[in-house]
Write a protein that binds this DNA or RNA. Structure first.
Lengths: 360, 360
DNA sequence: ATTCAAAATACAATCGATTGTATTTTGGAT
DNA sequence: ATCCAAAATACAATCGATTGTATTTTGAAT
């Protein structure tokens, strides 16, 4: 095989057709070494600011590297160091505003620390989640940040990561298994605040649109709902709980069922904004006045919650901050030798934003 | 340095502490070769289904690889082949529904073809766009799909890609420079349809919220607007054109100016949905009835356009299909030797979706 | 049984950066 | 000028897969 290097060594690039000269214009440390009459190991150490190279030499190397347009080949570096400076991110879907905010936070922190980010969507499918894990393994990521899909009920597919020493930090949708780090908001408290808010507005029969109970976040929001009821001496009624995947369509269907109840509902706490919006559309279309007849509180503060009329009261989740915190924690895990850093759970602040949908 | 391999060669993994044994359990082709008493080159060829290896051997190798849990090291492979099977994607922001749809289409097509995708956000900033290009170069991507930022006015930063033989395909927000492939919708026609729709609804004084005119898409939507006016013998008035970056706030401010005009406006064609929504909010708050007083048409069919009341008439852009087509085109460029494939522009279908905001 | 292409496999260099070890250089003390 | 430890740099192996070339094996024809 005739390689560019061989060609270079044969008689200088001057004799090459221009196209070839341009195509493989990747400068290597060997090119710099040759140009400066140094060894490539010295060039490498100079570029990495090693104490084993004198400052004067470093200056010369750096200058030459800049002059020649050198750019480190991460592939070679990663292969040698068996560290890719890459982290994988798995989210249910990037189109959800909350997740895209988290990703922005992740990217910012990661890039600053010299890491590249690979973003993947599970689209709420367990099978895709499994495939993605394999892809990320193949990419030899140093760590993974993830929010599990709604379909995920067992966590065997995550064991490969641990076995291969790949750090894993959950954000938002975490698992209840020990020894994993998490960055969360206090979903129990969020659910509690949302429900108590409705109670303080005078609601007596509050329905709850709950999410898949295999996910801790939805379990906890549900618990918060129950706690608020009991604190204010309201009875908990199983019939007022509507479990679903919290899509817009679910919000609609739930509302239909809800209107058929014998005892009229006067408040809804939905575990996310999307289902709340679905409910608002259905209810409004069917002559129910919001918030007069039924007050509604959502969860996540998606941008649509300010577009719908009346604007939706919701629990704000600081996506960017969650992303930043999760990334910092992951990088700490990665850079701590032997995975010796103990798992920890960081709780971020969330807060209720009151809008028209709950103003009585 | 004591490597896992050395340790393995010394006396077998049995003598190693369990932790170390587990950490570097990456199986290589050499491990498979040793286990089968073959050469690593034969194993490599077997795994790559080369005709130089007999089927029986392939079967044996494949079986052993599966048994040992082998996973190809892409770093090594990419380094040797100087091809990473990775493509970079640059979008203004992933939180825009249109772009996240495009990304879904890109990922689907790319993963099927064995490519990994690195997603980056310019956040509409030229400087970030430049940085991202460098990051992607460092990652040695095989190709780039991009939609330029609103701030991008010169394209020198893209020349590095061409110089290094990295294929580049634009989608949606393209450049007017030749020799680049594009996947677009017909923005001129979209602008025309949107405006003509308003005219057919009886509007006589139609304002246009235009985007940055350095971007072809906004230039063309603007041209379409003008063309519809002239076709229907309506005068074009410079005063009815409101240029901005099309954020929600811009929609609000434009509406304020628009209401102050001597000659009342009875229709608005906004070059995107977000600014249209901003306008709708402001106008509704100020007693203007939509669509009775002012009819509105947006562009892109963001999900919010169905949430706002009245629902927003808009031009639908098939994001997923655009993503798929752009990826297919890019992969064709990548796999065609010497970049010999001529640049081409693919126009995808778009269509107007009529909703309440323009029903007169 | 012998011969010899063709088929199958082995050998060895390579991608570019890193890093442990070996060698040379430097400059201060004698 | 000589010596020597410390400083600076060079040498060479390595990460894991790929691939051009060399060698061995196979099996069909004689």
């Amino acid at each position: 095989m005739i390689t560019a290097k061989k060609l270079r060594n044969l008689g200088g690039a001057n004799y090459l057709p221009k196209r070839i000269q341009m195509q493989n214009n990747k400068v290597t440390i060997h090119d710099i070494a040759k140009a400066l009459n140094l060894d490539s190991s010295t060039v490498s150490r100079a570029l990495n600011d090693s104490p084993r190279v004198i400052q004067k030499t470093k200056d010369i190397v750096l200058a030459k590297a800049a002059e020649m347009g050198y750019q480190r080949n991460h592939l070679a570096s990663s292969l040698r160091k068996s560290k890719t400076n890459t982290i994988g991110v798995i989210v249910p879907r990037i189109s959800r505003h909350f997740f895209s905010s988290v990703i922005s936070g992740i990217e910012e922190t990661a890039y600053e620390a010299g890491y590249t980010v690979i973003i993947c969507q599970s689209l709420e499918q367990f099978n895709r989640e499994k495939k993605i894990i394999n892809t990320l393994l193949g990419q030899r990521v140093d760590g993974v940040l993830m929010s599990i899909s709604m379909e995920t009920k067992d966590y065997k597919h995550l064991e490969v990561l641990k076995k291969q020493g790949i750090q894993l930090v959950f954000f938002d949708r975490h698992c209840d298994i020990p020894n994993y780090s998490n960055v969360l908001i206090d979903d129990f408290n969020g659910g509690f605040e949302a429900t108590e808010h409705l109670i303080l507005k005078g609601c007596k029969h509050i329905a709850h649109f709950s999410g898949p109970q295999n996910l801790e976040i939805y379990k906890n929001r549900f618990k918060g709902y129950k706690h608020a009821l009991s604190k204010h001496n309201l009875p908990f009624e199983e019939a007022l709980v509507f479990p679903s995947k919290l899509m817009e369509e679910d919000g609609r269907k739930n509302s239909e069922k809800l209107l058929a109840l014998p005892n009229p509902v006067d408040g809804i706490f939905s575990a996310n904004d999307v289902a709340a919006i679905g409910a608002m559309k259905y209810l409004t279309d069917n002559g129910v006045k919001i918030p007069e007849d039924i007050a509604i509180v959502g969860f996540s503060n998606e941008p649509i919650s300010t577009v719908i009329n009346p604007a939706l009261t919701t629990i704000n989740q600081p996506g960017i901050e969650i992303g930043k915190a999760a990334t910092e924690l992951l990088l700490k895990h990665i850079t701590t030798k032997n995975g010796a850093l103990d798992a920890q759970t960081i709780i971020m602040d969330s807060n209720l934003i009151e809008r028209q949908s709950s103003k009585k």
